[in-house]
Design a protein around this nucleic acid. Structure first.
Lengths: 193, 193, 193, 193
DNA sequence: GATGAATGAGCGTTCATTCAT
DNA sequence: AATGAATGAACGCTCATTCAT
């Protein structure tokens, strides 16, 4: 008999994990996650095999969601700056819109038991940005360091900006906040000729 | 006269905590830390009262060490750029020189049970940079966002740079690595007029 | 369908607690109780939530058992003296028949972490005797002190008698032991007109 | 070199033990007792060798104190009833006057690690009452049970009376409380012809 | 002798995981 | 497949006792 896992369980458990990890950290018990998801302790392990695997898949899944949220609707006609700004706005918008997920990702980024494979898979999520970034830095001061490094710097600035916007929300939308614009300008000045 | 408290224990425990947290994460057992420090389980609790307090004091102490490593020997005569570069080089040099401590700080930065008081104390560590940063951004594009935000961006770039240098060590010293210079240039372009 | 909670565990744990507390006192470890009950350490806490709760429920349960053992089969037609003697015989018979339970009750009676609620619940166990006692003392020398006080005196005499019968068992049945009769006579003379 | 134990330590530790056991039960730590006594943890063990020994000596010492408090000033000319009443009043007076000591004795009476030797020594404390009790019961209904048993019954009534007077203090002095008189009358009726 | 830091066995409790139902 | 009771290793922490000072 094949174990047909109920896909609704998978989603419910991942959502529950986000909610509970956001509040209690990675030390939440599997029992707490299962209860929040409305399934039994056993079902969690039928669905994910181990807590570690659940956490790894959550990591990949959140990064993928972030990639998806960030990449759509790119204005094809626009120049690189406007395109990057578009990505930036979507990035900031998504993350400040789901602070729990951002919070969880911040924990997973430094978590011990996220495997190298998961980290690789997660990096794919932003790989769509690679080509754009390449165009942005062409001829600029960061043209001679690895693209991976540029992406890392960019991500760190994005995360810092997002965390500041979450910790100290401004009066308007996060995307229009002066901090978001200032950070984007900084990036652009750092990258472009 | 009573047996005197061995002052080396405190340092030994903090060092052991760095070593073991770097490898196993914050979930290392107090028994493991004590054993690594060469003292008994009881002595850990004589010295720190709780694991949480040990971790908090470790956080404050590492941040303070980082602050000290970063702040000394500033060339008084030099302009802001050279001064900031001086700080940058020391920062990168210290963190790449003690990758375990950097790794532990990355975990503590997002840890659940670091108290607000500890975070405040930790922020003092970089406060010496505040005035310098103020001079660097004067008249520049980041003059209108909170200094705290600028510091946050700066720190995130430093951490990203350091982590990349640690993950993929270059052939020479970290300070002379092109990534370090590129990141510093990026910061300077982001900050200054 | 889930695995069903084994209802025998609760009884096994309470029995094991009686056996081990009788021998080692209230400081027995939960591990010892669980092992004696033939269940795992975890099951003890699935069943009772804390050691303190186990101990409280044991107290209430032993008092209730004592109440039940004491109260049945009262000869309705008989006079107060014969009725009280009936209760007395059952009381002495039950307690000397399960010296471990008597021993445990003696410890729980003075235990620090028996709650007021548990003590209240326990008092209900002897409340059935209240009315009978009221009839016994009517017009007698103890008619003007609180009934609670009379019950306390009566209980203390019973316990002292039982403890002596347990410590120094006589040749025959405890109920027929001259000490039991002497103590009952003492009570009757103390109470009745 | 002989270990001259400072006798002041002994008294201070026994007093501290009474105070702390009365509040926290027999599980008080030796450190707590030592601190309350104003001596170091080490001195407690220089003075008593083990916690168990401290507790045993405390038991014997409290019983002895009770015996002394109870026995003095017996009116030589008086009849047995008045003499017993004299003892009774002193007993109730002493115990209600030092409720902490009574509380501690109640715990020690059922404690696991009070040795048989300590219990024997403790019984000596009331042995002075033996002869008086013998005279009181002569020709009475309790003349044919062991004196030890009579003493046990008497003690249990005294303790029950004292505990009730402590738990629910009356308006006047404990000795004049109707419960004290009622209990004494009960004893007298139980004992005497 | 007095001190109190050091010790380590032992505690109550948790929780990832298993498995009978 | 789904359940949740059962498991037992592991945890943070305590405390009677020892021993260097």
């Amino acid at each position: 008999m094949s174990r047909r896992r109920n896909p609704a369980h998978r989603e419910a458990l991942l959502s529950a994990a986000v909610e509970m990890i956001a509040v209690q950290g990675l030390t939440v018990s599997t029992a707490t996650i299962a209860k929040q998801a409305g399934v039994s302790a056993g079902t969690l392990f039928n669905t994910f095999e181990s807590k570690s695997l659940l956490v790894n898949q959550l990591y990949v899944s959140l990064k993928a969601e972030m990639g998806r949220a960030t990449s759509g609707g790119l204005p094809a006609e626009a120049g690189p700056r406007d395109q990057l700004r578009h990505v930036w706005d979507r990035w900031v918008g998504w993350a400040t819109g789901t602070p729990e997920k951002r919070r969880v990702l911040a924990q997973l980024d430094v978590a011990e038991d996220i495997t190298a494979e998961s980290r690789d898979a997660a990096h794919q999520a932003l790989s769509g940005m690679g080509e754009l970034l390449e165009r942005c830095r062409a001829g600029g001061p960061m043209q001679n360091v690895p693209l991976r490094f540029v992406l890392r710097i960019l991500s760190s600035i994005a995360d810092a900006t997002i965390d500041d916007l979450i910790d100290r929300p401004g009066p308007g939308s996060a995307t229009d906040d002066p901090r978001s614009s200032a950070a984007f300008d900084a990036i652009w000045r750092a990258l472009a000729r």
